[in-house]
Amino acid sequence: MSIMELNGGSVIAMVGKDCVAIAADMRLGNQALGISSKFERIFPVTDRIYLGLPGLATDVATLRERFRFRVNMYTIKEEREIQPETFAHLVSSTLYEHRFGPYFIEPVMAGISKTPSGAVKPFIAATDLIGCLNFAKDFVVAGTASTKLYGVAEGLWEPDLEPEDLFETISQTLLNATDRDAFSGWGCIVHIITKDKVVTRTLKGRMD
């Protein structure tokens, strides 16, 4: 049995029109036994960058704290907030430091970056457990339900969705994909990130 499947859990991020969305299930299990239906695996890094960490639960907590350390140092020294692309590379290099004894996590990031002209650019990225970056233009998925997420997302996603429509699309993708995965589910949480605000909603779904 793979270590990545011990605790279960899945994350997805999608790009919309001047907005991004990131969503995850809330199950924490020990193989087939479900332990918690309130396990958060998406964390804010800055106001406009969110990081999702599916995989081994102990590494979720550890990595979250390590990134907080490194981003705090960055913010204090640079005297500005870290940008999404830079943060993605920080994630990649942190994971590669443990190339031969990795963290069992496949991070997913979503954020809004500002271009020099002041325009808004939606950003998503994901890495594998040793830090290989993937800068997709449509969506990124990770976790035990990743193949299911790929299938539904590929069928439902279209470019330039407005925030409300992006919310519906990512929610349906997550719910239907996790319903087909025994190790994901038990509650879903969705964050919609725009230039001005972040709206967080929990979804009503199957709790089996």
Binding site: E65, R66, R68, F69, N72, M73, I76, K77
Partner: peptide, 16 residues
């Protein structure tokens, strides 16, 4: 100052 900043973050990492 750099040492102080890292010391503060190390404490945060260990004790939250």
């Amino acid at each position: 100052v750099n040492y102080a900043r890292t010391a503060a973050q190390r404490h945060l990492l260990m004790y939250n």
